[in-house]
């Protein structure tokens, strides 16, 4: 159970974060299996779930655990949103991360922030890791924050947000 101070801190951060637009830059690189392609804008229209690994994260470690996010991709297929896993490594680590992602041969496309544009244009994303997984509604605003796979509470809540989002869209 979180303390009142922690809850208030999260509330303030969420309020600020949810006021900002999330921008998907055109220069993201898509690692599709073993191949490197340009981002396909048409495939990421509408609502999105963003999984963001920033330059402070241990990309190598995260790449080894990409499969943990696959249930989200399955959920996306049935609920009609797109999952975007974005790595934004330091420039020094870029080649290494690209190579590792290609070797991993993930069945889902993984995006690489090659110029740091995603990081720069979305500076509103807090450094707090809990804010690095979030759902963006078609109006480009975050509508849910957290990893739905992290707890039953977050999963159920995410389902409610999706239902709410679908009602508004329809």
């Amino acid at each position: 159970m979180a303390s009142c101070t922690e809850r208030q801190k999260v509330r303030t951060m969420m309020m600020d974060f949810m006021k900002t637009d999330i921008v998907i830059p055109d220069d993201l690189e898509c690692i599709c299996g073993h191949e490197v392609k340009a981002i396909d804008r048409d495939s990421i229209k509408g609502s999105m779930f963003i999984i963001y690994y920033d330059s402070l994260d241990c990309s190598s470690c995260r790449i080894g655990h990409l499969a943990e996010n696959y249930p989200l991709y399955e959920m996306a297929d049935t609920s009609g949103f797109t999952v975007l896993t974005i790595f934004s490594p330091r420039m020094d680590d870029l080649k290494e991360v690209r190579l590792q992602l290609m070797l991993t041969n993930s069945p889902a496309p993984i995006y690489l922030d090659v110029n740091g544009s995603f990081r720069k244009r979305n500076s509103s994303i807090p450094s707090d890791l809990r804010f690095h997984k979030f759902y963006v509604s078609p109006d480009s605003r975050p509508a849910f924050v957290g990893n739905p796979l992290a707890s039953d509470k977050l999963y159920e809540l995410f389902e409610k947000v999706l239902n709410h989002s679908n009602i508004i869209t329809k």
Partner: peptide, 16 residues
């Protein structure tokens, strides 16, 4: 309500 539930659920998750 969804917002407040989200705050609570997120605050309850593992500390960063």
């Amino acid at each position: 309500t969804l917002f407040e539930d989200n705050v609570e659920a997120l605050a309850d998750t593992e500390s960063p």
